[in-house]
Amino acid sequence: MTSPLLTATNLSAGYRATTVVREVSLTLRAGDQVALLGRSGSGKTTLLLAMAGLVPPSAGVVDRHSLSPRDVAVVFQSPSLIAELTSLENVVLPLRLSSRLPASEAYDRARRALDSLGVDAVDALPGQMSGGQQQRVAVARVLATDAQVIFADEPTGSLDATHARAVLSALRTHCTAQRGALVLATHDAGLAAALPTTWRLDEGRLHQVVPC
């Protein structure tokens, strides 16, 4: 068994006075690819954000072991693109912020990521794109990075079946290449079935873990 990338112990998190996620304990290891199922309001987004370190837990601990913040990436439920930047600029943004790569290589990698998801409108602003295109750009922004752990919050919600499959495939390929893990929150049972592991979140509690 590989060493854990991320461990949550008795994790609780919520919004203001409301606790949404209750005492969740889990471990993510390299190669884990998990579908997170749950009804609307069950706490899927909060759990993902808490594990990503973007929401502080109200109780419990998230141990990211040797992962740096840049090794963890999130695909948000809404596309979350910066309105003033083009597709290409949005995708290259995290690479340019991290300054790990030379500029030319960063832009090349961003183009490849967009290409892999079939986005050719590299100079279009988000407002000039459809919701599906924006969602694919948001996914490409994660794919262009070296993130080891990806939390994707309903990344295929506004995509047709073909593009949804392409996105899922790209995310899984990236995790495999990076020897990382993927947690994908979704309502789509079919999509969940495509992943080796399924977690179910009900009333903030992780009730069922089904090993692949």
């Binding site: 340019r96 030319s104 960063a106």
Partner: peptide, 17 residues
């Protein structure tokens, strides 16, 4: 053109605003 630390993106944002 691309500059250190992604400043070209900062310029792009200001330009489009």
């Amino acid at each position: 053109t691309p500059r250190a630390d992604g400043r070209e993106l900062v310029s792009a944002v200001v330009r489009r605003r």
